[in-house]
Design a protein around this nucleic acid. Structure first.
Lengths: 136, 136
DNA sequence: TTGCAAATGCAATAGTGTTGCATTGTTTAT
DNA sequence: ATAAACAATGCAACACTATTGCATTTGCAA
């Protein structure tokens, strides 16, 4: 199984709920909210289990979390090789103003900005808003 | 009164709670969360009143809202002339990883990024993370 | 000063996310 | 294949942020 090996590779146990979550996220091209997952999972798992599984995934670099315009978390599989607590996600998060879906989009030249004196930059995130390809 | 004229200029009634909120935000150099305000206001106003006042301010272009890393709203006075529903805030939001305060920082050259075909960009936000001048 | 619309306070509610604890399930070593 | 060890799950309860409805009070314009 694909999900099983992914889990093992990150030192995690392979359980039905975790495999299901990974399969859902793998089959979805945009980031999914907890509510999305809860609905798709149906009665297969408890809400709390989903929260815990998602947190574990994030801590082990399998997925990353984005907050949308409303401050609600959405989750997407990491494309690059993220390891525990070392996420490499230099991409843009785009939320569609029509369908509210959040997409992870590649950016050819990731911008750098100069900071005022005294401020020490460690990470810059790009959050975009607009209309996605499906709603266009 | 300063706050009164600001309110009038945006077609809003001048009330004690609103003036107090504006004075607090004017005296704070970083964005304030609802919890901050609630604590500073003390028993002067109900929580719900604060939420409503802040929403009204935002709708009239007096303040703008930023979501921090935790998805919690923080509010800051608009510097430019924002009008109702037409915010002009091409600046960077910087959250300190030590004190968690959020600062609005100017950016000399606001970056532009190219979007994949099909995606129509309407707004790009910059959210930075690092250590602020006070914690450095 | 008075009347009306807007702002406020209070109570209740919705949604997101977390914690504690008992139970179940996965894995490792035998 | 089995058992022991430990991690994952389910359930209940809780914390926090934010919103809504309604009765009351207040700001402001006529």
């Amino acid at each position: 199984m694909e999900s099983t090996s992914l889990l093992k590779r990150h030192g995690l146990r392979s359980t039905p709920v975790r495999r299901l979550l990974l399969e859902i996220m793998d089959a979805t091209e945009h980031a999914v909210s907890h509510a999305d997952l809860e609905q798709k999972v149906g009665g297969e798992a408890d809400r709390v289990t989903l929260y815990r599984a998602l947190n574990t995934f994030e801590e082990h670099g399998i997925i990353h979390k984005v907050l949308d315009r409303e401050g609600v978390a959405r989750f997407a599989l990491c494309m690059d090789n993220c390891s525990t607590h070392t996420h490499v996600d230099e991409h843009l998060h785009f939320q569609c103003t029509v369908c509210s879906n959040v997409y992870c989009l590649p950016v050819e030249h990731y911008p750098r900005v100069a900071m005022p004196t005294g401020f020490n930059l460690s990470r810059l995130s790009l959050v975009a808003e607009g209309v996605c390809k499906r709603c266009n």
